[in-house]
Amino acid sequence: MMITEVQVEVDHRAGGLAVLSFFGRLNMASASRLKTAIGDAVDAGSAKILIDLAGTSFIDSSGLGTLIAGLKRTRQAGGDLRIARATDQAVAVLCLTNLDRILRPYLSIGAALSDW
């Protein structure tokens, strides 16, 4: 069995912004890791959160739910949540569920941050 290591890297930036990079499969086994990281970042003063999905090899419905929870959490704190560099698989499930309407998949980190 291949072990897929899940990892979340947090990069706090100026202006109450944090970039969270999630590595591995974002599913029912790992979604709580991202949810905790988003909560911790908001508690640390970063209400604007960009999730970098370039290293996220797979997203299931649990992962989508965590992104929605994060979106609501950041907005309650006066911020917002964006996603960037989603893989083809992530974009496919976002579009299939119509979540691309509220979680627009930005092509690059620069594009996601350009008007923030």
């Binding site: 929605i68 609501k72 119509n98």
Partner: peptide
């Protein structure tokens, strides 16, 4: 049916 956009669960089988 696919749940509303802001629901956090219920998408698995519709997907």
């Amino acid at each position: 049916q696919m749940p509303d956009e802001y629901d956090e669960s219920g998408r698995g089988l519709p997907i």
